[in-house]
Design a protein around this nucleic acid. Structure first.
Lengths: 193, 193
DNA sequence: CGCGACGTTGATTTGCCTCAACGATTGTGG
DNA sequence: CCACAATCGTTGAGGCAAATCAACGTCGCG
């Protein structure tokens, strides 16, 4: 567990927590390793944990009426991810959480998080900032999706997150941007030599 | 300002704040009245305030490449709304905030909110819960938008928020669901006697 | 090596947009 | 209190962006 420096450093970017406090905080969380494509949570169950990505990448997705996977969001290093409806109400979820790559994450379940927040009230501020940032990101995600054409959506996304586009397979990018892998391939075929 | 009971009651749903504390908290905020279609914030400026809706309804939108307004989110009574990217970084915004109806809101600007959070740390928890809920709502909003057809998006939305569909004009609903007023009208024409 | 996962390409189809014109409703000033 | 304008919803014809379906090439991995 001394390997959770990523989390420690991330917390210290936003609030003060000394070494001793952080050691105690670690008592509330659980390290989890996930291989590529492993599900950390599945639809139909309560989403028990809030996940912090130390290494790798997770995604939140659901399966639509036609059986096609639709990706709601990705979480790269230093992002938290959960189905927050299910997590905070402890009701069954409609979403899946899956590792896009081999990943190292930290999981905290709901009762543990509540106790942790009681013991360390400054963590309320930390999570307030985390959720505020995530909320802001969602607003921009929606703006991106409302771009006029799918072609523009794709090019805008590439411009904004070039490294990320390199990193994930195309069919996942398609499921995130809301179109078919075939059409994404067609767009990519244009222009570029 | 004794008319801010809505805010007081809302805060007390999540955290404890006594009458005296609430009176002090009111020193940080500013009541604002908005008539229908009045802009409380405009693209190109810094989004100075975080808004709490006491009565009425606000919306966050932007204008796309073709000059069409696209609504990102609505805020009914007891919801907070802002462009959180702009608000928290104090950079210029790409969004507008407009009153859908005649509305009574409470505005708090960024420095005031920071001071208020310092004075009342329990408000960090309040806003943590507010943003967590908003983040959860965004996840479900995206799920809705990824429904297979526009027709299904509309019917699902009507089923989930029947009162809201009654309350707002159709062209705003169209701009929220991501399609044209004409097509929305066509969908409504089907089925119903 | 051989299989499965992933990306590509092309033919065909369709959901939804565009544009235009026309009622209905609201509200506003004379 | 009425006339006129603006706003909003509806309808229909035509067109296009993107989906669907199918087949094939390629790469990485067991």
């Amino acid at each position: 567990m001394n390997s959770c420096n990523e989390l420690k450093e991330h917390i210290n970017r936003f609030v003060r927590l000394n070494d001793n406090e952080f050691e105690q905080l670690l008592g509330y969380v659980k390290p989890v390793s996930a291989r590529k494509k492993q599900n950390l949570h599945e639809a139909g169950k309560v989403c028990k944990s809030n996940f912090f990505v130390r290494k790798g990448c997770l995604r939140l997705f659901f399966i639509n009426d036609k059986g096609v996977e639709q990706t709601i969001q990705f979480a790269l290093e230093n992002w938290w991810l959960s189905d927050y409806t299910s997590f905070s109400s402890q009701q069954t979820s409609l979403f899946y959480i899956q590792a896009v790559e081999k990943s190292e994450v930290v999981a905290i379940n709901f009762p543990a998080q509540e106790k942790m927040l009681q013991q360390f009230p400054q963590m309320e501020r930390y999570f307030r900032l985390i959720h505020q940032r995530a909320h802001a990101a969602s607003q921009y995600r929606l703006k991106g999706l409302f771009s006029q054409t799918r072609e523009k959506i794709y090019h805008d996304f590439c411009k904004q997150y070039p490294a990320f586009v390199q990193r994930i397979p195309q069919y996942l990018l398609a499921s995130f941007l809301g179109f078919t892998p075939e059409y994404l391939s067609e767009i990519r075929g244009k222009r570029i030599s």
